[in-house]
Write a protein that binds this DNA or RNA. Structure first.
Length: 305
DNA sequence: CTAGGATCCTGTCAGC
DNA sequence: TGCTGACAGGATCCTA
């Protein structure tokens, strides 16, 4: 799950709990995604929490930074020392990232990769698959990290012209593949790529090179709009995972127009949303609203002939 | 250089 | 019930 809005939600949500607090001890599970030594972390105070694309950066007062990437199934869960299990208590608990029952179950568990012990509580880094990681870096060298240094601009930092140029350069790639490439544009994952393309009424398989500047601008607008909406609604957190009646759900229900809505009606035109495979990923779209541009142009040519 | 596919890992779900 | 294969909210590595 964790795309830019979820990582931003983690950043904002963790701040009140760990900013200016001391990590008494870090407890990594051996071989499970902690790169560094515990002595680089133990006893250090958190002085800032930043985000670059989908990477979370926790700056420490000893000159080191914890770079955390949640990848597909990572989660960060704060349990205050007075937290009561199963109780949604914003003052004592915070959970965000890949939504799962870990949000409300006892921790650490089998999926816990790293535990950060504070006097005020514990921060758990959980990951169902082992794709996520925590890496200790000198703060001064964060920008040199390969992932960070090659990261593209975030949608709101980018002009439509810039994205259009990238689309031209990768003209034969489906537009969805361009949107998923963090080196070209940072922060979009499978959900927001699909949602942005729905917003712009562009078919995910459209070769990036055939898109007009206007279409690219609309896609960029869609990325900004859908991700901002997700950040505003809290992304995937415990609050959006646990419904008021105590059952669990998915924050996607609140705003997704196409993602995981295959077989349901398009909110715009009523057609049935379809799911296919594009750029190696499950891809959702409305077959009526989102038509491949190339075929659109061909149809127009036929009409005028 | 770009484009496409395999791959890392564990869990879940659909279909026998 | 148990087995099997597909596939998953990400990114990298390898090949052509």
């Amino acid at each position: 799950m964790p795309e830019l809005p979820e990582v931003e939600t983690v950043r904002r949500g963790l701040k009140p709990f760990i900013l200016n607090k001391k990590i008494i001890q870090v407890l990594p599970e051996p071989g499970k995604g902690f790169y560094g030594t515990t002595t680089e972390v133990d006893g250090a105070k958190v002085i800032d929490i930043r985000r670059k694309g989908k990477a979370l950066l926790i700056d420490l007062d000893n000159g080191n930074t914890l770079m955390i990437h949640l990848r597909m199934t990572g989660q960060l869960i704060w349990r205050g020392k007075n937290a009561k299990l199963g109780q949604v208590d914003d003052a004592e608990q915070f959970a965000a990232g890949h939504p799962s029952k870990n949000f409300t179950s006892e921790l650490p568990n089998k999926q816990t990769r790293v535990t950060f012990v504070f006097a005020e509580g514990k921060l758990f880094f959980n990951d169902q698959r082992k794709f996520g990681f925590v890496k200790v870096l000198p703060t001064a060298e964060v920008e040199l990290d390969k992932f960070i240094s090659e990261l593209g601009k975030e949608p709101w930092e980018m002009t439509p012209e810039e994205l259009y140029t990238k689309c031209q350069r990768h003209g034969r790639s489906p537009i969805k593949a361009v949107l998923l490439n963090q080196k070209l544009i940072a922060g979009l994952g499978n959900i927001y790529a699909d949602e942005s393309l729905f917003y712009a009424s562009v078919h995910p398989a459209t070769p990036a090179g055939v898109l007009t500047e206007k279409q690219v601008a609309k896609i960029l607008e869609g990325a900004c709009t859908t991700m901002n909406a997700a950040i505003d609604s809290g992304g995937s957190t415990m609050a959006t995972y646990v419904r008021p009646d105590g059952t669990t759900g998915d924050y996607l229900e609140k705003f997704a127009q196409v993602f995981r809505r295959e077989g349901q009606k398009c909110n715009r035109c009523g057609a049935i949303i379809e799911k296919t495979r594009c750029a190696g990923r499950g891809t959702h779209y409305c077959p009526h609203c989102q038509v491949v541009s190339a075929s659109k142009m061909a149809a127009r040519a036929t009409e005028s002939a």
